[in-house]
Design a protein around this nucleic acid. Sequence first.
RNA 1: GCUCAAGUGGCGGAAUUGGUAGACGCGCUGGAUUCAAAAUCCAGUUCUUCGGAGUGCGGGUUCGAUUCCCGCCUUGAGUACCA
Length: 1014
Amino acid sequence: MPFYKRKNIKMQYHFNDIEAKWQKYWAENKTFQASNTSDKPKYYVLDMFPYPSGAGLHVGHPLGYIASDIYARYKRHKGFNVLHPQGYDSFGLPAEQYAIQTGQHPAVTTEENIKTYRRQLDQIGFSFDWSREVRTSDPNYYKWTQWIFIQLFESWYNNDSNKAESIETLISKFSAEGNANVNAVCDDNIEPFTAEQWNTFSSIKQQEILLKYRLTYLAETEVNWCPALGTVLANDEIVNGVSERGGHPVIRKKMTQWSMRISAYAERLLQGLDTIDWTESLKESQRNWIGKSVGAQVTFNVIASATKQSHAIEVFTTRPDTIFGVSFMTLAPEHELVSQITTPEQKAEVEAYIEATAKRSERERMADVKTISGAFTGAYAEHPFTKEPIPIWIGDYVLAGYGTGAVMSVPCGDQRDYDFAKHFNIPIPNIFEGVDISEEAFADKDNTIIANSDFLNGLNYKKATKLAIYELEKLGQGEGKTNYRLRDAVFSRQRYWGEPFPVYYVNGMPQMIDKAHLPIRLPEVEKYLPTETGEPPLGRADVWAWCTETNTVVSNDKINNTSVFPLELNTMPGWAGSSWYFFRYMDAHNEETFASEEALKYWESVDLYIGGSEHATGHLLYSRFWVKFMKDRGFVGIEEPFKKLINQGMILGTSAFAYKVLHSFTVKDISDEFNIDELKFVDVFVSKTTKEHFDKGVYDDSLKESLNIIANIYEEKGFKVEANIDKVLMNPIHIKVDYINASDELDIQALKNDKEFGKDYKNAIFIGENGGIIDGENDVYKVGREVEKMSKSKYNVVNPDAICEQYGADSLRLYEMFLGPLEQAKPWNTAGITGVHGFLKKFWKLYVGDNGLNVTDAKPNADNLKTLHKTIKKVEEDIENFSFNTSVSTFMIACNELTAQKCTSKDILEPLLVLLSPYAPHIAEELWSQLGHNESISTAPFPKFDASHLVESSKEYPISFNGKTKFTMELPLDLSKDDIEKAVMAHEKTIAQLQGRAPKKVIIVPGKIVNIVG
RNA sequence: GCUCAAGUGGCGGAAUUGGUAGACGCGCUGGAUUCAAAAUCCAGUUCUUCGGAGUGCGGGUUCGAUUCCCGCCUUGAGUACCA
């Protein structure tokens, strides 16, 4: 850089130097390290756990981090002891898939990715306390994930106390009184036993029984198996019937898996939603996922025939009030009773139907809701009240997995039953008073009056339901019941890169390894694929057996099943580590426990959690589940982990398109020999305006020109061509957004020099807005733009590194906030960043002039004070409301006003810096230090708002006629209504508006408006 | 289908309890400065037939509606035969 440009280097806003300087300062001085003891009130701000992906960050990722960072910094100014940590959810599929492809150990790639991630985060200037960093793949961390798993295994859910208890309490109940009086959440296939029986059961038998009660249990369950990924998936990992990651098909398969008895917590998870400050939409999706329905379980006895023994069908219904409307029953084709009750005459039909439905994939069944299908079993059930026979059908609209897998079909009150009845000509009795059911079912509970229903006649939904349940209970054929859609969560994954279970097997029964010997470290394997025999990747480990004598992991050869036993081959799912990480940040290096009691007590729960809404039914539900469990067992003191939660909206990309002209030519006189390569198109692109004309059917000069060019090229090569203008096509081609300027003009030279794609455009011809071939500066090429999801394939990804280099982190932070409301999806367009960058330059100039610091001890004037206090008020309100976009505007307005006022007063400019510092911390720190401070601005007190500076003596009243503002009038604020009216009526413009008419009414709201009606 | 959001200039968006619709910024237009460009600064920028009209559409409440109520349309997200 030449000398003359360098001489006042201190005077200019050199954001790169400033930002590097302060990032270094913060790191060296541990500015943001939070203490677990403080006189200040605590505040815990957390970002959702990032997975360190290989692609690094794009500008969409830091949006939430910037918002939470602003809030964290603001809270420090407000005198809080702020915990604002960051870490990595570093186990996961992508690293493993990469390992499978390249053979690289996932730990190695994960480490590299974390480095990139960290560098990118650091350059944005976040106030994270990195001393508390956690990584789920770190053995010192997953040691405690394993420990929590053991605690779940050692617990059962007691419905009487409505909480999880130690399994010991259950064992003592069993040995004292058997299981008759145990009210637990457990498997449904439990046989009753007495204390005597329990005490004589073998150890294995006892373990088998206990497994049915434990909060994490091993059971053969029907799971979602993804063959392509070679693993099972949880319900929330499947989107539209295919895997969320990769979009691979998923099939149902029976496997022995670890499961989490989250269903025990269904009601508490539902109730807890009312106590937390989350968005309604997020709570709603959790409510839907939990899917509570209140109704009754009813027993229908199957009418025994000569050949069949008696059976009973259990159904769940939310409408016991409609029990007299039952005209058939429907079982899921998979229902276990189907084969037993089907009559010989119907056997062939039923079996054919079951086979046909089994063939249909889950996806087909979901997609094809309209087709009605089913089969009659030939069997009849007896109505509990009328004792009439009811035909039993099977149909695939009844799901095996919900309720009891069987329904009492009330066609007059349920549209699906109605459609089924119509289709198979089953009678549709009407049990509703004054309702026409000739066209469709009547499902409106609120307006129901029951008829044709014996003792229920004349009752409404509520009363009839109650009475029906009462009568069923009297018969012993039913009871009130609440059902939840929420299923227990499968916890095993057939993967390598996850937490190993602290579990070994003795005679096939799982045994927990004692806490003292944790962590059980992930073993080495030579390949990250399942074994040839279909076992998970850990099946490849040579050293993966547990020795109960040395309490160590030993070589598999030593397995003797007396002292050395095989270890569990599955690993834990991605959500294991992320379900409790917020506790570890409180005390990240504790080796005695997952976090000390004092730390847990001090930090309690996360006060503000910011992240994406995609975790609604996964992470956010599982975390709540684990926290409730940990509270029950006394490990933590809170019921809900995240008090307030905000979902940041997605940042979309603004894709750029160039329009390639494609032409169909009639090639005349094709000679026998020609080189097909010479026929290769030379790409000709037309500018945006031409494309718009073309879409409207206008063939402008630029299009004609481009066709000429193409024709000429052919002619030069010896072909005669005849262009047919109706066959012209225009293909939009994605262009890397890096080469587009603020006016949507393409930098053709830069595009042609692109390392990756430049060669594709080397010979391309661009025709500009004015219709000529672009050669140098003669014309510009404009691209079309469209908002799409930000993705590599659309060439609209913007990397924050480039933004930081060109405009600085403070500009990036401000611009991300300036784009719009935090929670809304919004498009990114780099062009707009010049606005906030220009603001920062102007802001800098307010403090530093060509000759040094501008700031003086001059007394502020009334205008200066008004600007400052208006800004304090607005910025404070905005931050409290998470309306960060409007604060940025407020800063711009303040800067514009103070510049116009030529304000140099330190009394104004110093507090203004504190206001700005959460948003643009680097420039604030720099100017703060130039003002003579030796301490970081980060804990400077937030300026106090003083309303007295905003008091006005007059108001510019809008004078409106019939609600339409016509002109304004400056009037003193202390004027009475009458005086205002007089003054307004005397105004010449009022007289002109009224043209002699007398107004019907004059509305005056002092300090607001005047409205003249008439 | 159901649930939840959201529809305002060329674009991102603002208007916090009903009270001057379009703040702030981008882009655009014109001007200053410059040999020139960048940068910077100044002015203008909803539409308009210059009467007005105007916040997705149609009604309503009100002196007054982007804001409240009713009905519809569109877009996005989630969910999907849940008995």
